[in-house]
Simulated assay, not measured.
Amino acid sequence: MLDDFLIRAALAGVGVSLAAAPLGCFIVWRRMAYFGDATAHAAMLGVALSLTLSTPIFAGVLLISLLMAVTVSTLSGRGYAMDTLLGVMAHSALAVGLVAVSFLSGVRINLMAYLFGDILAVGRTDLAIIWGGALLVLVLVGYRWSALLLSTLSPDLALASGISPRREQLVLTIALAIVVAVSIKVVGVLLIASMLIIPAASARRFSRTPEAMALMAAVIGACASVSGLTLSYHFDSPTGPTIVCVVALLFVVLNAAHAVTRRMRAAHEHPTPCLDRQD
């Protein structure tokens, strides 16, 4: 079954969706969209490092993403404005990575594959890395779920309960670095943040519990990955951007459906009174 490149690509997309869903929920709840974007952009520097040292791409991307996430988390509490800091570090890391790659001699590199993903080129080893990373993230986030949720809702209450918000922030940082490292082959450096944020944002309005939101985000992400892969195959469009287009379309459709349903429910509960006409 794994000899079919489309099967491998579909499994890779589902694996990334499962890993990104719960983490994306915390990013949405904590309003950390820029944080995820900065970590993803730093992955390009990790690609350059891996190619220079002839090491696996996953190792270099994981190392640099983790360093970026830890650096941002450390500096954010020392008088730096978070949005400014993330903007500077995200674009600087991406630019340095692109320049570093251009100086590599004797190395053939498809830059577009790292920027926008190359899911159709996923091999058995890549598939093992993606699913291994996804399972690691799910176990890590599942093990710390209650503590992560409490520190997200109320850091003061978490401290009173003996939970360190900074420690939980570090758990999210490690999980984010792993997701970025396993996702680069699927959607690329520039589109990783979209697979983290958009499925979670789509599921937010239809979920009554945090667990339901994470589960629904995983389903939305997986459906978008498979649908985007199918459309890309039939229309010969770039696969990574097509997947993101599908998940963005699902976001629009689901929000529109929610708005219509809410208006219909409001009209049913509070009908407009009829005025009797008198001749």
Rank of each mutant, 00 (worst) to 15 (best):
V122N: 08
V122H: 05
G123E: 09
G123S: 13
T125Q: 12
T125M: 10
T125N: 11
T125H: 06
L127V: 08
A128T: 07
A128F: 05
I129E: 12
I129H: 00
I130W: 00
I130F: 01
I130C: 08
I130G: 07
W131P: 06
W131I: 08
G132E: 13
G133E: 02
A134H: 07
L135H: 04
L135M: 14
L136R: 05
L136M: 13
L136S: 12
V137I: 15
V139C: 10
V139A: 15
V139H: 07
V141I: 15
G142I: 13
Y143R: 15
R144E: 12
R144H: 14
R144T: 12
W145L: 12
W145M: 10
W145Y: 15
W145I: 14
S146F: 07
A147T: 06
A147N: 08
A147F: 01
L148E: 04
L148P: 07
L149Y: 01
L149F: 05
L150M: 11
L150K: 02
T152Y: 04
L153G: 00
S154D: 15
S154T: 04
P155D: 14
P155T: 11
D156I: 00
L157H: 13
L157F: 11
A158Q: 07
A158D: 03
A158I: 07
A158V: 09
L159V: 08
L159H: 13
L159Q: 15
A160T: 10
A160E: 14
G162P: 07
S164H: 03
P165K: 02
P165V: 09
P165E: 06
P165C: 11
P165A: 11
R166A: 15
R167L: 11
E168G: 12
E168F: 08
E168N: 14
E168W: 04
Q169C: 10
Q169A: 15
Q169P: 14
Q169D: 15
L170C: 09
V171N: 08
V171D: 07
L172Y: 13
L172R: 11
L172N: 09
T173L: 03
T173R: 01
T173Q: 03
T173D: 05
T173C: 13
A175V: 04
L176H: 10
A177P: 10
A177C: 08
V180I: 13
V180Q: 04
V180T: 04
V182D: 00
V182T: 09
S183I: 01
S183L: 03
K185V: 02
K185A: 02
K185S: 06
V186C: 06
V187R: 09
V187L: 04
G188T: 04
V189R: 02
L190W: 09
L190V: 10
L191W: 06
L191N: 05
L191I: 03
